[in-house]
Nucleic acid binder design. Structure first.
Lengths: 121, 121
DNA sequence: CCTTCATGCTTACTAATGGTAAGTAACGTA
DNA sequence: TACGTTACTTACCATTAGTAAGCATGAAGG
């Protein structure tokens, strides 16, 4: 279909490619990417070691947890500290941005309880 | 026994598999699944036909747009109406749940502007 | 008439991502 | 000595995403 994208009849300002919309899409997809919300929540609730998080987040695999923590660290939602004990301990915690993000997302719980009651089974 | 503090001694109720946490994860992943936020936003901003949404959401393919609209309809965030003109017109719009969802997610814009300034490039 | 275009999809194919299982180095415990 | 824990990585296959093309219907243009 998209061989010749004809939008000449369409007013350019109605396209969803301006700044706020791209930002919105980008951050929603970051927060909502599979496992991310659960990982951030686990950290918010006190888990701070790899294996704690792995136990807190139901059904996540080590491989994906490691991958997600690396991404979240790069995006600066999570801070990774190496503690030079023997053996080394690695501790993860939310950054301020991460804390604010889960606070912002909290209303989703009420939304879901209202509109998706079957989730409660 | 102190080099490695054992978190498994924490009480079971702190695990992230109880109801509110599962709901939280589930709805965050619904809202944040790739393209969903942008599609809902396009609808909120007035797009209501397939090709309008396709033009509004930058870089989405027809295939994924069709798939996502079907999912969003099943999840009751989007309503699909068939208008029996010739040829038939198909019109999509947000349900009340869908409208509330994008309202809830709106603070993400300010969050991202504050914490992810490089998105603004 | 006959070609061409728009709409709202579907089908076919490839690339990227996800899930499962197992492995690993360095230590600790029984 | 054997096994468990920690924080990962590697190997492999299944599922999903992205790209391109096809298609039925009808409208519009020459």
């Amino acid at each position: 279909m998209k061989a010749v994208p004809n939008q000449s009849l369409r007013n350019e300002s109605s396209r969803i490619d301006d700044e706020a919309c791209r930002i919105f899409q980008h951050s929603a997809e970051l927060a909502g990417k599979k496992w991310n919300a659960a990982i951030l929540l686990a950290l918010a609730r006190g888990a701070n070691r790899f294996s704690d998080i792995a136990h807190s987040v139901d059904r996540i695999s080590d491989r994906l947890l490691a991958a997600r923590l690396r991404e979240l660290e790069q995006r600066r939602l999570v801070v990774r500290e190496v503690i030079p004990t023997t053996p080394v301990q690695i501790r993860y915690r939310l950054s301020t941005a991460g804390e604010e993000l889960i606070r912002i997302l909290h209303p989703l719980v009420q939304w879901a309880e209202r509109w998706e009651p079957r989730l409660k089974d």
